[in-house]
């Protein structure tokens, strides 16, 4: 299921610039084709760069805006030095541990990744025009038609680039591509409502109801997340609420019960998906040169997941496990 459109490699489909009549630029990390767990059918998922939250268990840390923009895989490095030659700011040097980057000098231009013949360096962000992005998304239209799939904007936080997202959503709408927005809901309410007019389904992440706990684990207060969810529900938007089940954070009876109460109390009824924590992101943290708190965390037991699902069902909610 791997598919990388980002990274500057010629191997990926070039987003060929064309006459894009006023199309807006945005920053993405990657595009995954044949994505089957981010909404109905066969989908293309666009991972957008940047997120106002900093959940420590995050599976896509490369999409945090403040991190370096190039991945480095030392095991692929053949030591040819082309990245060093290609760097315009002299930030790279060869050392015993492969190539090291001087963070003070690196301007994150990505030319080192372009120069690397061994795919050891990879861009983690890429500026694209909405029109080019949608042209790329539409390539898999036959699969969407057959399977009832479409596009999913995920991240990062797609609502953090509202103008770009809206432009892309509208263009997808013109092509009758089914649109899913996978969001933390942490955005201006006006943005949320504007996006809702061009979105067919929200996957809305709900981590914790308790404001303090939420702040501790994600770095932000959850007041606007909860009010936006209520507002979206009120507006009649199609929503699946997704609860990442993180051991020691929100898998206790009280957290689950409070989430159940809140969702059941929304103006309309919405299905809930439980997403049990898994450790697939370990390797990503290593490539980014980061430590990972999640690395020592065991995934929740099947019993614990079932128990959480049961508690939620007690509120009359339809609960699924996994995406």
């Amino acid at each position: 299921m791997t598919s990388r459109l980002a990274g500057g490699s010629l191997k990926t489909n070039a987003l060929v610039p064309a006459a894009n009549n006023g199309s807006l630029p945005g920053t993405i990390f990657s595009i995954i084709r044949f994505s089957t767990h981010d909404g109905p059918g066969i989908r293309t998922t666009v991972f957008m760069k940047g997120c106002p939250l900093a959940c420590w268990w995050c599976h896509n840390p490369e999409n945090w805006q403040h991190l370096p923009s190039e991945l480095y895989r030392v095991e692929r490095c053949i030591g040819c030095g082309r990245c060093i030659a290609g760097c315009p700011s002299g930030a790279l040097s060869a050392g015993p541990q492969g190539i090291s980057t001087d963070p003070g000098r690196c301007g994150h231009c990505g030319r080192c990744a372009d120069a690397c013949p061994a795919e050891a360096r990879e861009r983690t962000s890429r500026r694209v025009d909405a029109a080019d992005l949608v042209r790329s998304i539409s390539r898999d239209a036959p699969f969407y038609d057959q399977s009832g799939g479409g596009v999913t904007f995920s991240g990062g936080e797609p609502l953090a680039q509202p103008d770009f997202l809206l432009d892309a959503l509208q263009r997808c709408g013109e092509l009758e591509i089914h649109r899913v927005v996978d969001t933390s809901g942490y955005a201006e309410s006006g943005t949320v409502l504007a996006v809702a007019r061009h979105t067919d389904l929200f996957l809305y992440d709900l981590k914790l109801i308790d404001p303090q706990q939420h702040s501790i684990h994600t770095g932000v207060d959850n007041a606007r997340i909860l009010s936006n969810l209520r507002m979206l529900s009120e507006s009649g938007a199609a929503i699946v609420v997704r609860i990442p089940l993180i051991p020691g954070v929100n898998d206790d009876a009280e957290s689950i019960t409070r989430a159940g109460e809140f969702i059941a109390g929304l103006p309309r009824s919405h299905a809930v998906d439980l997403l049990p924590f898994h450790r697939a992101a370990d390797a990503k943290y290593a490539k980014l040169g980061l430590g990972y708190r999640g690395g020592s965390l065991a995934p929740p037991s099947p019993g614990c997941v079932a128990e959480a699902a049961r508690r939620l069902s007690d509120f009359g909610l339809i609960v699924g496990i996994g995406g």
């Binding site: 490699s9 010629l10 191997k11 990926t12 489909n13 070039a14 053949i78 040819c80 082309r82 013949p117 061994a118 795919e119 390539r139």
Partner: peptide, 21 residues
Amino acid sequence: EETLRRALLNKTPFFGNDDDR
């Protein structure tokens, strides 16, 4: 010529990627 080989392998549009080139 490993560097050249990698460049050929990794910097060429290849069949199987929906790449019109």
